[in-house]
């Protein structure tokens, strides 16, 4: 897709916008700076080579990525349904989809246990019929992260869909394209930036997920201990190690996002 670089409209930047913008920027960056200032940098290489840290980091990246894939496969169609279909009660559905955003993640984890736990509504049959038990497994981590992260993707994509001009789709339809073809060739390219933004948000949320993960999937090194869990437990005994671990997670996620941005997102301005 060709991009149009927009030039700033008008000359001087209005103070009404710039001032709160700068305050907002500081509000977001100063705590981060605080973390970086307090980081015992000498300890970072040592932590990076620790087996448990490598394990937790790998698990975090794998689970967050798998959760994001699940969210994409289910979330984009869901967003399409909410934005484009004439389903009755869409407004209510739209509100319900955002519930996991509001729910404290720990409660989300308990809710998942109620449904997918060993004695859960669905989980008891999974266990009895197939011998599948999701709590305390890596699959459980992925599910917990997907549950918490999917609304971010759905909201982003749905917003993009609603903002997109439906006339292109209508034009394609008059030319005889099927709805699936229209979705793939017209809709998806139009909303690509929204999908990318949603994916990044979703991945980042999944990577930082703590409450639902520890509640639903528990905490066991190599199986369900992701970085946020390792950070939380390190905080109990060794706050310095916890800071180092969070910085490691931060650096890796920034590196991944920057890398992806250069490769696939085509260097948005």
């Amino acid at each position: 897709m060709n991009r149009v670089r927009r030039r700033a409209v008008g000359g001087r930047l209005p103070v009404v916008l710039v001032l709160p913008a700068l305050v907002g920027l500081a509000f977001l960056l100063v705590p981060l700076a605080g973390l970086l200032v307090r980081t015992p940098w000498g300890a970072v290489p040592g932590q990076l080579v620790r087996a448990e840290v490598g394990q937790a980091l790998r698990l975090s990246l794998v689970c967050a990525s798998l959760a994001t894939v699940i969210c994409l496969l289910l979330g984009v169609p869901l967003a399409w349904l909410l934005a484009r279909s004439d389903l009755p009660g869409r407004g209510v559905l739209r509100a319900l989809v955002t519930v996991p955003l509001v729910l404290p993640p720990v409660v989300g984890g308990v809710a998942l246990l109620f449904v997918l736990g060993r004695r859960g509504l669905v989980g008891q049959y999974l266990d009895a019929w197939f011998g599948i038990s999701l709590p305390f497994t890596t699959a459980g981590v992925v599910l917990a992260e997907a549950f918490v992260a999917m609304p971010f993707l759905v909201v982003s994509v749905e917003g993009a869909l609603r903002a997109a001009d439906p006339r292109y789709e209508e034009a394609a339809a008059t030319l005889g394209a099927s709805r699936w073809l229209i979705f793939r060739r017209v809709t998806l390219p139009t909303i690509a930036p929204g999908v990318v933004a949603g994916t990044v948000l979703c991945w980042a949320r999944a990577l930082g997920e703590f409450g639902a993960t520890i509640t639903f999937a528990g905490n066991f090194p190599g199986r369900t201990t992701t970085m946020p869990l390792a950070v939380y437990l390190a905080l109990e005994t060794d706050p310095d190690a916890a800071v180092v671990l969070s910085v490691v997670l931060l650096l890796v996620s920034v590196a991944v996002l920057v890398g992806l941005r250069d490769r696939w997102i085509g260097g948005a301005p």
Binding site: L113, F114, G117, P135, F136, G218, N219, L229, Y232
Partner: peptide, 20 residues
């Protein structure tokens, strides 16, 4: 041979309570 190492004792209790 633990399946999960919880962050506090109430979390262990919750897992037992729910029968997990």
């Amino acid at each position: 041979r633990a399946d999960t190492l919880e962050q506090d004792v109430k979390a262990v209790l919750t897992k037992v309570r729910l029968g997990e």
